[in-house]
Structure formats: structure tokens, C-alpha cells
Design a protein around this nucleic acid. Structure first.
Length: 439
RNA sequence: GGAGGGGUCGCAUAGUGGUCUAGUGCGAUGGUCUUGAAAACCAUUAUCGGUGCAAGCUGAUCGAGGGUUCGAAUCCCUCCCCCUCCGCCA
């Protein structure tokens, strides 16, 4: 969430963000500020009462028995007053927090303003989609032909939007994992990409296998609990299955104050992502583009306020570098205000070329959230003047295994239905071509 | 899952109803001394909020939440976490 004082001082900016992010109906900044005033007045009242109580109590301990009885009677009265005004304060605070949590982050001045995804802006396209001299197959047909993806059996066993990865596809998953871990820990690559993006740090990413369950209240502090319908929620345990490694990487430093020298902190996490896809009936029903569980490598980074934006620049450069290594044509998209997440200050997507669909499809996203998440997570650092500030957080896809497998399989398909393994992954597997299996 | 023991200022520990604006030790920072360093000595050493030019005043925080009390680190309840042992288990 945003700082209430920031909202007060930047009222127009915040109001614009509400409108630009298409939240005009649901978020009322004036109402919020009124509520804050109500809360602040009540708080002052309660604090004055508490000060009085504390003073009386202190006196009671010092005074003779006679006077004591009198003071205790007086203090009892104050106590009652505190009780009732504390109740009012609590109600006001609950309402304030509800309103405050609805307020979206403001956006970077360069973020395109738009109502929905149709107004996203393509920043650049890299690589040229290959011209095939035969009719291309989609990943579903190729997956079946090569016996590497089985959705039919998965439907029987688990339901729609589930799948089996088999043979080379299963092996390629680990090749992709190792490729990412190696890249993000490679000093030379980080040095080059940091220099290119004017990022002052060449620090390596720490590989992490995070927990897959998260406490619902912590998920809420990440501003990722809602819509709860999108989550697999275990009521008995008050636990939620993560929709991304981000969800448990982000709170890795909650309730901590870090020193300046610790920053940036960079993690590369590998985990399944669990998604109910509740509102997506009829969308991408074929294949493994949109599924309930997919494995994903996710970058998460904590920086100072000053370095947050260049951190995202670096992360985007890393994403591009790795896609380029796989030799897949892609485009970089600046997500417009109406299509951004509420916590985002700037969001960029990568879209990889999918030959069977004859278009670019989202495979990566990168979210820069300033201190919107860290404020409620209470992840802070001490800046050079000794002041405590909240860290700025970035999260971004390194690779989502399912979708990148689709991109690889489709872009590297050959006329005979076999698939060539991208050069960069070959050192991690002992095959160069995926061929049909003998029955 | 069962039994027991714990969670206090960066770390270690003291504190079992008011003198706790939390003591002590270590560490850290500044200073004295020294050619320099160490040692010794002196001083400082939580965070967030309100108010104020400032000094200050003030509220909250001793795992979290609730309760008892004029007053809670301290007593009671619930929860979370850690440790030891037992059981189960990859």
C-alpha cells in the first residue's frame, strides 16, 4: 500500500493513477482522506486520554493511602473513557485500512496511459520469425507426435488444464532451470548487462527453492491475496498455494531492517505456480499455454529507492538476454496503466513468437512496485543519512517452463515433425533433436 | 500427534505487579591517551507515530492478539515460533 502522507501530499497524482488504472469506480481518494482525518482526530483523543491515565497511575504509586483511593476512582473513570474511544478508533482504523489497501500505486511518467491491453505499447521487436516452407504444427500436435506432452491422459486423471511432460520435455525443464541458474550467477554476464543498463551492482542472484504454501495474512501483505478466487486456498490451515515464487520470495525479509551494504539482494527462485484460472473459461483451452500448475523461474530483487528503476532495466535486459540465447523472436511491451497490476509502478512484458498462432504471446512479465509491497511487509533499510526507508521491490519471470517449452517446440520444429534443441540448452541435455519414439 | 522448556534493546543475559523513561556484559560509534594500534577510561547506542523552528513534550512497541488491574515485560486466555525427548515419516 501507499503511505497515507504520500497520498495526502500527492493527491492529484494518486487520483490520476486511480483513473488511469481504471479503478475510478471503486477507489475514492477524498473519502479516504476524510476517513484519515477522522482516524487522526480519534487517535489524538485516545492518546491524550492515555497520557492522562499514565500520569494518574504514576501518581498513585507515589501518594499516601488516602489520596490513593481518590486517584484510583478518578483513574477508573478515565479508563472507561479510553475503552469507548479506543473502540471508535479501532473501527475507524479498520475502515481506513480497507480504503487504503484499495489505492493503487502511482506509475512512472513514461508508462503509457490506456484503458486495456489493446493500448500496450510495443517498445521493440528482436529476432525475425522464421519462415517455414511447410505447414507449422502447434505444440499440442508436436507434443503428442513426439510423446513429450500428454494432455489427454491428464484430463482424465486431474482435469482440464493439467498435463504430463514426458521424455525430452521433462529433461528440458531441468536444462532450462540450470541454464537460468548458471546465467544469473555468471559474473561476466551480470557485469555486461549491468553496464548496459547503468545499474551500479553486478551482484549475483541467489538460487532459492521457496515454500509453496504461504500464510493467507502474509499473502495479503504482499498485496497478492486477492482475487482469492484465483488462489488455491486451504481453509483449515489458512494457507494459500503460491501463484508464483514471487509470493514467498517477496516476504523473505519481512519485518527486517537491512543495512545499506546488503543491498541489492537478488534471488532466483524455482517453484511451481498454482493458478485456479477461475475467470478464463474458454481461453487457451488447448495445450499448455494456460494451466493450473506450471513450473517457473522467478527473479526477485530488493534495492534502495534510488536503484529500483535501473534494477528493473537490468532485469528486463536479463530476460532479453536469455530469450536471445534460446534464439526465439520476441517483443518487449510496455504495459499501459489499464492493464497493469495495482501494486505496479512500471510493468514490462516479454512476448515470444508462437508460429502456430502467428503472433507474439506473453511469456514473461516484470513488475516494479517501488515500496508498495515492502511497506506492509515491513522490509526496510537504513539509508546513507541514517533514516529508515522501505526497500524497493522488483519481481520478474526468468522463464515460465510451460510457455517457453511451447515457444521452443514450435519455433524449432522441422518439416518431419522433429524439434531441434536450442544451442544454449544442449550442454544440459544429451540430445540435440527430439524425435518420435518407437512404439 | 504426546510430554517438557523457552521467545526481553545488534548478540548474550537480568528482570515474576508501580522505583522499568528495561539493568548488566559483549559488540558498535565518537572521544581521551598514543608515533600508530591495542588496552584502559569517558560518552553515546531501539523503532515507529503525534506535536514543535528547536530543545522538548507525548502515544505505541519486551513473539502476536485478547483479558484482569488505577497501573502489566511481569498475572490469565488464545495463537505463532524455537529447543529437548517420544511417536510417525521421505
Amino acid at each position: 500500500m501507499l503511505d497515507i502522507n504520500f497520498i495526502k501530499e500527492n493527491k492529484e497524482l494518486v487520483k490520476k493513477a486511480v483513473i488511469d488504472k481504471q479503478l475510478g469506480e471503486s477507489v475514492d481518494i477524498e473519502k479516504l482522506l476524510d476517513q484519515y482525518q477522522t482516524y487522526a482526530d480519534l487517535l489524538k483523543k485516545v492518546e491524550n486520554h492515555r497520557a492522562l491515565r499514565n500520569q494518574l497511575s504514576e501518581n498513585i504509586s507515589k501518594v499516601s493511602a488516602d489520596e490513593r483511593t481518590k486517584l484510583i476512582a478518578e483513574a477508573s473513570q478515565v479508563k472507561e473513557e479510553i475503552k469507548s474511544s479506543e473502540k471508535d478508533l479501532e473501527d475507524a482504523e479498520v475502515l481506513l485500512n480497507v480504503l487504503l489497501k484499495q489505492v493503487p500505486n502511482v506509475v512512472d511518467s513514461e508508462v503509457p496511459v490506456g484503458k486495456d491491453e489493446s493500448e500496450n505499447v510495443i517498445l521493440r521487436q528482436v529476432g525475425t520469425p522464421k519462415k517455414f516452407d511447410f505447414e507449422v504444427k502447434d505444440h499440442v500436435d508436436l507434443g503428442k507426435y513426439l510423446d513429450i506432452i500428454d494432455t489427454e491422459k491428464a484430463v482424465e486423471v486431474s482435469g482440464s488444464r493439467f498435463y504430463y511432460l514426458k521424455n525430452e520435455a521433462a529433461l528440458l525443464e531441468y536444462a532450462i532451470v540450470n541454464f537460468v541458474f548458471d546465467t544469473l550467477r555468471n559474473p561476466e554476464i551480470l557485469k555486461t548487462l549491468a553496464a548496459k543498463t547503468n545499474n551500479p551492482s553486478t551482484k549475483a542472484f541467489v538460487p532459492v527453492i521457496p515454500p509453496l504454501f504461504i500464510k493467507a495474512p502474509v499473502m495479503d501483505r504482499m498485496a497478492r491475496l486477492h482475487p482469492i478466487d484465483e488462489r488455491y486456498y486451504f481453509e483449515k490451515d489458512d494457507l494459500v498455494l503460491i501463484g508464483s515464487a514471487e509470493h514467498t520470495l517477496g516476504p523473505l525479509h519481512m519485518d527486517e531492517t537491512l543495512s545499506l551494504s546488503q543491498l541489492p539482494i537478488r534471488y532466483i527462485g524455482f517453484s511451481p505456480a498454482f493458478r485456479r484460472e477461475a475467470g478464463s473459461y474458454g481461453k487457451d483451452t488447448k495445450g499448455i499455454i494456460r494451466v493450473h500448475i506450471f513450473d517457473k523461474l522467478e527473479m526477485e530483487s530488493f534495492t534502495t529507492a534510488e536503484n529500483g528503476l535501473v534494477e528493473q532495466d537490468l532485469i528486463v535486459a536479463i530476460q532479453e538476454y536469455m530469450i536471445q540465447q534460446l534464439g526465439i523472436p520476441y517483443q518487449v511491451v510496455a504495459i499501459c496503466t489499464g492493464d497493469m497490476g495495482k501494486p505496479d509502478y512500471r510493468q514490462m512484458d516479454m512476448e515470444c513468437w508462437m508460429p502456430s498462432q502467428n503472433k507474439y504471446r506473453e511469456t514473461h512479465t516484470s513488475d516494479y512496485m517501488t515500496d508498495y509491497q515492502s511497506r506492509r511487509l515491513s522490509t526496510a533499510y537504513v539509508d546513507s543519512t541514517g533514516k529508515k526507508r522501505f526497500v524497493h521491490m522488483n519481481d520478474a519471470t526468468a522463464f515460465a517452463v510451460g510457455r517457453i517449452l511451447v515457444a521452443i517446440i514450435e519455433n524449432y520444429q522441422q518439416k518431419d515433425g522433429t524439434v531441434v534443441v536450442p544451442e544454449a540448452l544442449r550442454k544440459y541435455v544429451n540430445f540435440e533433436v527430439i524425435a518420435p519414439k518407437e512404439k
